[in-house]
Each structure stands twice: as C-alpha cells, then as structure tokens.
C-alpha cells in the first residue's frame, strides 16, 4: 500500500511540476505579433478593388487571418492566389464560388478625355490615387499605377471611363512553358 501511495505522490508531484512548467511556458513564450496578416497581405494583389467585400486588401488579409473570411474571395488574385493562400494557411485549396467571378485579363482604366466633365468623382473613388485632375478640369489616369480595380467606373456620371486590357508588348512578353511532345500524349 505504501508503494502505491509513493507512486501516486511521485506522479502527482511530477504532474504538478510539469504542469507548472508548461503553464509558465505558455504564458511566458506567447507569440505576440501576428505577422500572418502581413504574409497574407503580401500574397494579395493589392488592387484594393473591394471585390472581397472588404475595403481593401489589408482588411481582407486581417479578416482571413482572423478566420472571418474565406480564401476564395479575391478574383484579381486568381486561382493562383488562392493556392498560395491555401499553402500559407495550411488549408485546402478552395475554388471560387460558382459564377462568383469571371476571369478578366489585366486591364487599366482609360478616361475618354473628350467626355470627361471634371467632376472628380472618380478621383475620390480611386484607391491608389492613380487619377489626376481637378474640379472642372479634365482627368487622366496614370496607367502605370492603375490596378484595374474598376472602382472608378460606377461613380462616373458620364460613363467616360472604360477598362482597356493590357496587351502583350515586347517589354512584358514571356517565353511560354515548353511543350515536350511526349508529355502531351495521354491515353
């Protein structure tokens, strides 16, 4: 009986000790910051288009990190973006909801300067300040800064903005993935 009690005492003491160490460690070495948001934000395409229903890429990143948003809400990021997010977060790839998005080629907005009335509404809508102009002055878009978010389209009272696909030029042309004939044959 005394052996039993000794064993019990030793085990209890051990348990208390280890529990204390673990408890201390979990308080002492708590991981503070949440760099996850930054990592997610780095994957997002920064179009700031709000198609994810969040007011920008970072809020969406925060929502994903907080478990409030799914990873498949960013159409500009494409499936590639979802894949990267899935990999980062260690979750399964999840395709876009059916009919939720249409894949669009990368485009930039273009203002028809003969129609523009200089209302500045698009300037206020642009999330990256890529439109220059002033009241009663013609506006124009800095194409190199335009993310193609289309947020400037709805506010324009005269519909003078349209999206122009960015074509391939010699400067951004890419060598395509080589096709090895033998791989193409499949039973």
């Amino acid at each position: 009986m005394s052996g039993f009690l000794t064993a019990l005492a030793i085990m209890a003491a051990l348990a208390i000790l280890l529990g204390a160490i673990l408890g201390f460690a979990s308080v002492r070495f708590r991981v503070e910051a949440d760099p996850l948001v930054d990592k997610i934000d780095a994957i997002l395409p920064q179009t700031q288009c709000g198609q994810c229903s969040f007011p920008g890429c970072r809020p969406y990143a925060e929502a994903i990190a907080g478990g409030e948003a799914d990873i498949n809400q960013c159409p500009p990021g494409g499936e590639d973006g979802i894949r990267k997010l899935a990999e980062l977060l260690g979750v399964d790839f999840k395709p876009f909801d059916e009919g939720a998005i249409e894949v669009k080629p990368k485009s930039v907005a273009l203002i028809d300067e003969t129609t523009c009335i200089g209302c500045t509404l698009c300037i206020q809508a642009c999330p990256v300040d890529a439109i220059v102009g002033a009241a009663k002055q013609m506006h124009t878009i800095i194409a190199s800064e335009c993310t193609g978010c289309e947020l400037c389209l709805p506010p324009c009272p005269v519909d003078c903005i349209q999206m122009v696909p960015v074509g391939t030029t010699v400067a951004n042309w890419k060598w395509s993935y080589p096709v090895i004939p033998i791989k193409a044959v499949k039973a």
């Binding site: 529990g19 673990l22 979990s26």
Partner: peptide, 12 residues
C-alpha cells in the same frame, strides 16, 4: 481543465 496545462492533463 486549465488551457495552459491541458496536454499534461490529457496525457495523465
């Protein structure tokens, strides 16, 4: 079970 020491408790 306190959250911090749940694992040792489970193991026990």
């Amino acid at each position: 079970i306190p959250n911090e020491i749940r694992n040792p408790v489970f193991i026990m």
